[in-house]
Amino acid sequence: MILKIYYLSKLYLLEQIRRQVHLVTLFLAVILLMLPAYVNSFSLGLSAFERVAKDFGLTLISFYAVAMAIFLGVTAVSSDLERRTLYPLLARPIPRWAYLMGKFVGVLVVLVSSVLVLSCCLMLSIAALAKFADGQLIVVALCYALEASVLAAACIFFSTFSSPPLAGVLGVFLYFVGGLSQSFISFFLVEDRESPAVAMLARGLKMVMPHFDLFRVKNAVVYTLPLEPAYLLSITGYALAWMLLFVLLAERVFARKDL
């Protein structure tokens, strides 16, 4: 069965490569590699550059990962459904959960590999100036990849019961509400806006959603603080649990669907 999931992901990956999805990644990679060129044009000091570059680069990577996650997650199954390329595949002796798993693994590989490529580019371009390769950058970027993967799984789930545009909107909503940090809610909604009702709603919604804010550990690397391995391990477990949940939910909906 694992072999069949592998073949399904392979099919997905080959198709994505033929659709030249990886060129987007390449384009961003080039932008990141060019970062040193900005030092002179903005007359930054090195330390400031390092911080700004890390901040900017990681933000770029996180936006990219999220956008890719929503796009890939929403299209993974629905494009097969709409083009009806699903029929010959599901006529093969594979259960539907394996089909979904294959798609998800494919999306996962695209996300993780492109985030890896991008973060390596960022690391290189910073190392080119600061003469110091900060491996933590990659760790932080991988946390973003984890976040994006959970989001992609959610989008796959959404796309099993709604149209692609609606699934995309749901994905964006999940990302924003699930990504609100507790301190944001208390600071911005309660202290500043004095709207505890909205804060309550946000807290309530957030409670049943994946807490995307847990994955955002960018400041640790921007301000060169250590990241606890225990924490990294815990968010990895957390992400895996959510991914599995979304894929299982998607399977439950998908299994009852008339294609």
Partner: peptide, 26 residues
Amino acid sequence: GYLPEVAVYHEFMGAEELLVLHAALA
């Protein structure tokens, strides 16, 4: 073995390449 009513396959794939994957899945 099933032939769907509407003939749509993964159009970016080569014929042999896609068929090999189908054979593997089967």
